[in-house]
């Protein structure tokens, strides 16, 4: 399903964290949200997820999500929060996968379909060995993979990922983002991911949205948005963009402009 944001604004108390964001993510595509710390990236995805009050419209195939109740809206959205410390308690990964599907509704036993879907998700993400472990018994990276599984198992139409690779090693960063891209294409989801790694954004996102002080400054395909001049202006870092094999581009930071060498 396609997602479109129309003049979206997000408030945190009296502070306007995000304003005037308009963009579209087609079904099966990934949008990377970029920007410096405090640019409003997390507020944007939290607003779309329904965790912060918003102005403007969030449309899913034309239907305004802000007009839906929390339960209806949450059914359409999978959200992986920044940091995964909130996964706690003595629930196993398998329990959590059932819980994520149930959404707090009353049922004495988990439906058979939920059990199968949970197991399929463990297989898909290679998490079978962790099925009986609790988040407390896992590494940060494993927890991040589990958080993704918990979002995907609900079969959302929109997948929101806030720095999904922050705790992952190099191999698993690629593993997770390949998986997200594959799943996005196959399920026809609209995926929005907040990333700090410009190389990963350039490689895995179909388009990027760059925020500065809560407002959009550039949007479009990564190759068009991520230029040396723009990176210098937005991040204040002198970068070189190198053409690599397979059509990939490598972004190499040389030095902070007006500061010490990077």
């Amino acid at each position: 399903m396609s997602l479109s944001l129309e003049d979206l604004g997000v408030r945190i108390g009296r502070h306007r964290a995000v304003r005037g964001v308009s963009c579209a993510v087609a079904a099966g595509e990934c949008l990377a949200v970029l920007g410096r710390n405090g640019a409003g990236k997390t507020s944007l995805v939290r607003g779309v997820a329904g965790l912060l009050p918003v102005t403007g419209a969030i449309r899913l195939d034309g239907q305004d999500l802000t007009a839906l109740g929390p339960a209806e809206r949450s059914r359409r959205i999978g959200y992986v929060a920044q940091g995964v410390a909130q996964l706690s308690a003595q629930l196993t990964v398998f329990d959590l996968l059932l819980l994520a599907q149930n959404g707090g509704q009353f049922a004495w036993a988990a439906p058979r379909e939920s059990l199968h879907r949970a197991e399929a998700m463990l297989d898909l993400l290679g998490l079978q060995p962790l099925a009986r472990r609790t988040p407390a018994e896992m590494s940060g990276g494993q927890r991040q993979m589990v958080a993704l599984a918990l979002a995907l198992v609900r079969r959302p139409a929109v997948l929101l990922l806030d720095e999904p690779t922050s705790a992952l090693d190099l191999a698993n960063q690629l593993h997770l983002l390949e998986l997200v891209r594959t799943h996005t294409r196959r399920a026809g989801m609209a995926t929005v991911m907040v990333l700090h790694d410009l190389n990963l954004a350039s490689r895995y996102a179909d388009s990027v949205l760059m925020l500065e002080d809560g407002a959009p400054v550039h949007a479009g395909p990564a190759a068009e948005v991520l230029t040396e001049e723009r990176l210098a202006r937005v991040y204040g870092v002198d970068c070189r963009i190198l053409a690599m094999e397979g059509g990939h581009r490598a972004i190499y930071p040389l030095a902070r402009l007006g500061g010490t060498a990077a």
């Binding site: 949450s74 929060a81 706690s88 959404g103 707090g104």
Partner: peptide, 18 residues
């Protein structure tokens, strides 16, 4: 189930529609 979600996800249970 909702109470379990509160134990498991804390305030994050909101994203499950609770």
């Amino acid at each position: 189930w909702a109470l379990t979600a509160l134990r498991g996800f804390g305030d994050g249970a909101v994203v499950l529609g609770i």
